[in-house]
C-alpha cells in the first residue's frame, strides 16, 4: 500500500513538474539567435575571407556553431580575446594557417598603370574602389578594410597594399620604436 502511495506521489510530482517545464518551454522561448549578432559585432568586418568563410558574418555563424575562434588574422589577439570572453572559451593563439596578423594596410592603386578594367571594383567587398570602365580607379582609403582581395584580380598588378602611416594622433606610445637621431 505504501508503495502505491509513493508511486502516486512521485507520479503526481512528475506530472506537475512536467507541466511547469512544458509551460516554461513555450513561454520563454528564445526567438532568434542573438549570439551570431554579437560575434559579428566583434569581428573586424574586413570581409577578407582569410578564415575560410566568405565574409565575416558566415564566420560568425560558424563560430556560433562551434568553429574555432582563432581564425581571424585581421582581428588578431584582441578579437580572439573578446570572442573567448563572449563564448566562455579559453583564448588561444592565432591559427597561423590563416595567415598572420600584419600591420594594418590599405590598398593603393598606381593610377598611371591602371587600365580601367573594373575587376578590382567587383572584387572589393565594401565598395571602397571608385572608377568606371576604362577610367582609372582609385581607392577610398577611409573605407578600405585592407583585405587585399583586389590585389589578385588586377590584370596589370597595379594595386599595392600600403601600411597605414602612423600619425601623431594614431601613435600608440611605442617609445622603443622611436628612431633616435644621433648627435655628435
Amino acid at each position: 500500500m505504501s508503495l502505491l502511495y509513493a508511486l502516486l506521489a512521485i507520479g503526481l510530482l512528475a506530472l506537475l513538474f512536467g507541466l511547469i517545464l512544458g509551460y516554461a518551454a513555450v513561454r520563454f522561448k528564445v526567438e532568434s539567435d542573438p549570439l551570431v549578432e554579437q560575434i559579428d559585432a566583434i569581428l573586424p568586418q574586413t570581409q577578407c575571407g582569410q578564415c575560410g568563410y566568405p565574409g565575416c558574418r558566415p564566420y560568425a555563424e560558424a563560430i556560433a556553431n562551434g568553429d574555432e575562434i582563432n581564425k581571424c588574422p585581421p582581428g588578431g589577439e584582441s578579437t580572439i580575446r573578446q570572442l573567448a570572453d563572449l563564448m566562455g572559451l579559453e583564448a588561444k593563439p592565432l591559427d597561423d594557417a590563416h595567415g598572420s596578423n600584419d600591420v594594418k594596410k590599405v590598398a593603393f592603386i598606381r593610377e598611371d598603370e591602371c587600365i580601367g578594367c573594373t575587376k578590382c571594383i567587383q572584387a572589393c567587398p565594401v565598395d571602397a574602389i571608385v572608377g568606371a570602365s576604362k577610367q582609372m580607379h582609385t581607392v577610398i582609403s577611409e573605407e578600405c578594410t585592407g583585405c587585399d582581395l583586389c590585389v589578385d584580380p588586377c590584370p596589370v598588378d597595379c594595386i599595392d597594399m600600403v601600411p597605414v602611416k602612423v600619425t601623431a594622433s594614431s601613435w600608440r606610445w611605442q617609445l622603443d620604436a622611436i628612431p633616435v637621431k644621433t648627435i655628435d
Partner: peptide, 22 residues
C-alpha cells in the same frame, strides 16, 4: 591609445559591415 584605436576600429568595422551589406 589602444582603447581609442579599438573604438575607431569598431566604428570602421560597423561602416564596413554596412557597406558590405549594402
Amino acid at each position: 591609445a589602444q582603447i581609442r584605436q579599438q573604438e575607431e576600429e569598431k566604428q570602421k568595422a560597423d561602416k564596413a559591415r554596412d557597406r558590405f551589406e549594402a
